[in-house]
Amino acid sequence: MIDRFQNWLPRMVLAPSFFLVLVFVYGFILYTGYLSMTDSKMLPSYNWVGFANYEKLFRLRHWNTAITNLAIFGILYIGISSAIGLLLAILLDQKIRAEGFIRPIYLYPMALSFIVTGTAWKWFLDPGIGLENTMHQWGWDSFQFNWIKDRNYAIYTVVIAAVWQSSGFVMAMFLAGLRGVDNEIIKAAQMDGATGIRIYRKIIIPMMRPVFLSAFVVLAHLAIKAYDLVVALTGGGPGRATELPATFMYSYTFTRNQMGVGASSAIIMLIMIFSIIVPYVYSELRSGDKR
């Protein structure tokens, strides 16, 4: 009988986690999905309204601002972080003497809370006391940098702060990828007469496709979830100029008492993330099985 007990132990150990995740993740997703089809306002209500909330959502100017912002933010954030990350990784791979000193400096922002990052950049970019003021003090009177106060440019300050926080991490991913390339392949390329930049362009970077993919997935999912940074940096402003889906969801659900609309926006966010993550996780698990 003791053997039977031992057979069931593994299941019993895994069971709590399974049920927690089943209820608190998947159950909650279903519940939120259900709420998004009701006329819930401040409190959940169970009056079925079908897709009315979604129709309303996509007619809302705020939501369209949020989606447009997410597109701008997402593209620039992913693009610039990857470019800086790759550049720094390649430069650091050139037998830099002080690599062990430089690398941690590029990476430390990743240890910070987005709230801290937002606070720092908020004042750094503030025209009254930050960079603009300092340049004026230094005698460069015509210097102007007031994006954070400008409806049309504020979203780019979010990009700057987010790139500052994450690009070092992307650098670390690429550096690990570069170092993982088989040395013999590089030697073979050198035998063939290829040199520095060409080896990177033609051989190493193409071989790092999986790293690009991982970086893209990580950054995209961070971008869609971005909430704290906007709250701390701009508070969604000026006006609603830096609203993102995450801040939209929060304000509609908890301050504007439009829970049904808030829930539908959360579902849209989930769909966006899963459309990126699910294929990725699936292919990772598949290749993991083959290994």
Binding site: T32, L35, T253, F254, M269, L270
Partner: peptide
Amino acid sequence: IPFQIVLI
């Protein structure tokens, strides 16, 4: 998952 989905 975006945690917004579990808030409510």
